[in-house]
């Protein structure tokens, strides 16, 4: 629980709060060639009671070419269950006609889980519901990676459906999460009895990175989509709770982490209490060619007053700017005036 740890603040340059998603920015999905990013806001996680959820689940859009520091709310149309739409992990696929298809991990107020597929209408600036997928292997989904028009990888970050159950799971070490592959019709376990938070594939789609957040490690696996199989390559110890991932054009892994887990747990326990905040950390991880070793640069660290419980970060504008997302608060947009290759 990191009782002997704390965060010492530093920033890569000037930082500003992004207006709009006040109830969280748990995941970003960057559409590189359109220079936009979708933001999931208002995640519901192990709610005690449905009435505790006093916010709305929303999806925002941020234009990476402007310095507006304001994200735009995008309406989501034709949902089966509008009241039960609380987005978590995001991923996308570009269809043959150029349409952006969003894959969204969704929870309801009663913590029911599904994967919602939405197509983005660029002209009208709206998301149209295509399909909702439920499966008994989506135990407690967290993050998702689209691998085709209708196929994806999804991570389960545990098996317990209640807060008490989750505490037991964490302390006992008997994890019921893992990684599941859905091929459009049926689902297959790739990783079982594990904890998997953020997941991402390398840009060449051959390597899978899995955040084993409770063990403070990152698992590296080779991914064979044809045979629907993974093989473990290594497990990198980070000594910090890394959440979601982004792979940049230089093949560096970017992640938002929780360096002091006890403070994040306190913050999660009462999301609306502004006096509780979780420390944040943004790491840029560079792997060796065989993926067995990694070098880590800390791009940003904050005690929680500016960036509260970071989950995701990514660079843009040739690495001169970064966006940092958080579990339950606003995202932060920073300039980067430093070099990260100093060995």
């Amino acid at each position: 629980m990191d009782i002997n740890k704390r965060v010492y603040n530093h920033r890569p340059g000037e930082c500003r709060k992004v207006e709009g998603p006040e109830q969280g920015s748990e995941d970003f999905e960057v559409i590189d060639d359109r220079k936009i990013a979708f933001i999931s806001s208002g995640v519901v996680y192990l709610p005690k009671e449905p009435s505790d959820v006093t916010w709305k689940g929303e999806i925002y859009l941020y234009d990476l070419t402007k310095r507006s520091y304001k994200a735009e709310l995008i309406p989501v149309l034709n949902l089966d269950d509008e009241e039960g739409f609380f987005p978590h992990g995001l991923s996308h696929w570009i269809l043959n006609d150029g349409t952006i298809r969003l894959f969204v991990v969704v929870h309801s107020k009663t913590f029911q889980h599904s994967i919602v597929i939405l197509d983005y209408d660029e002209k009208k600036k709206q998301l149209n519901h295509v399909k909702t997928i439920k499966d008994d292997k989506f135990i407690r989904p967290n993050d998702i990676i689209a691998t085709g028009e209708n196929s994806f990888l999804v991570s389960n970050d545990g098996g317990a459906q209640t807060e008490l159950g989750n505490i037991w799971e964490i302390f006992s070490g008997f994890y019921k999460g893992g990684v599941v592959y859905f091929d459009g019709k049926k689902s297959t376990y790739l990783l079982e009895n594990n904890v998997a938070n953020g997941i991402i594939l390398s840009r060449n789609m051959k390597t899978l990175f899995v955040s084993h957040i409770n063990q403070e490690t990152i698992g590296v696996y080779s991914w064979d989509q044809t045979n629907v199989a993974i093989n473990k390559i290594s497990e990198i110890e980070t000594l910090t709770g890394c959440d979601n991932f982004y792979i940049d054009h230089g093949n560096h892994l970017w992640t938002g982490c929780h360096p002091v887990m006890k403070d994040v747990v306190a913050h999660f326990g009462n999301r609306s209490d502004a006096s509780l905040y979780g420390p944040s950390q943004v790491l840029r991880i560079t792997f060796s060619n065989d993926f067995k070793k990694a070098e880590m640069v800390e791009v940003l660290a904050d005690d929680g007053r500016l960036v509260c419980a970071s989950t995701i970060a990514f660079p843009f504008d040739d690495g001169k700017q970064i966006l940092v997302g958080t579990v339950g608060r606003h995202p932060v947009h920073c300039d980067v005036n430093l070099k990260f290759d100093f060995y």
Binding site: H10, L239, E295, V297, E298, V299, N337, L338, F342
Partner: peptide, 18 residues
């Protein structure tokens, strides 16, 4: 055990050119 900082590590960063 607490004094030894077994669960800590350093993540590199600089304030500018060194």
């Amino acid at each position: 055990l607490i004094v030894l900082d077994l669960n800590k590590r350093i993540y590199n960063h600089t304030p500018g050119p060194c």
